[in-house]
Amino acid sequence: MLSRNAYGLYWIGRYMERAGFVSRLVIDQLRAIQDRPVEDIDIGWRRLYSALGSDPVGGRLDPNLGEEQVMLADVYTLTDDLVFEAANPDAVLSCFAAARENARQIRNNITYEMWTCLNVSYLEMRDTQLLDIWNKQPEDFLVKAALAVRTFLGVAHNTMYRDHGWHFFQLGLYLERALSITSLLESHIRLFPTSEGHREWNWSSLLGICEVRSAFRHLHTIKFRPNDVIEFLIADRHLPISARNALARILYSLAELAGDHPEENDGPGIQARHAWALLEHQWPTRNVADDAQTLGLIDRINSACRLLNHELEQVYFFYEIEDTPPS
């Protein structure tokens, strides 16, 4: 397929996954401000921005938040930045706009149902401003956005032909997911070391962001241990959002794309297998009491995923023309 179309599909997957991820992060924060102490809210923002790898709008967060008015003003500003700010590429609406713009350019490579699903969601959201929803239930907007993402992914799953386009879409989606979950866990563990006495709320909030609280409770009904949460989100075989599951999907799609010539241009495969090997062989043998070791491994998986993005660009999207083309 045309490289530009493959690139467009790849980024639709990435942007939609990111839109869902950021929506869930902000929903968690907006719920926290209703009943959590100021320090929890403050640390929640730190985790959020650290996971996104960006700085809060207006600079660093004020560590001395305390006055309710100041806190609420900041919550408003930060929420606006993360949901509606056109200049913030990670903002929920920016992700929808970017995904929709990609879809518009490559409409022939997505289904009619995918296009209308995405277009209608975007048109419904684009004229909303935070001021319009702030005094009602601002998280409702984000719940709808997250639902729109899930709907879109479901529509794609049920309507898209399983050709190369599908696999590029999957690569974008699962690469973004692997990056998101590893970044979030890195940020979380740095703020809430497992060796310290933990408050269940912080880890429960992490599960809430990932929408896996009930699944976790089915497995771990008696004791709530931070390492169980980490294990669940990184390495669980049956959890759709786990890093392991994302990597398995990436490997499958790469194999499908390589077809009968897996040895050619295998840069993406090398990076994906590297990340997989870390998960399969080094992750189970780490010292779970050693956060530094855990963080080191998560960071290496995250780095391999970032390199995988680069390799995909080199091999499929923007490759150099070296040999004489066939005539």
Partner: peptide, 21 residues
């Protein structure tokens, strides 16, 4: 396929499009 200028290139007098293959 719908293509844009950068998707195409000319080599030895023939026109090609850049695909993932």
């Amino acid at each position: 396929e719908i293509v844009q200028g950068p998707d195409l290139l000319v080599h030895n007098g023939f026109v090609y499009m850049r695909t993932t293959d």
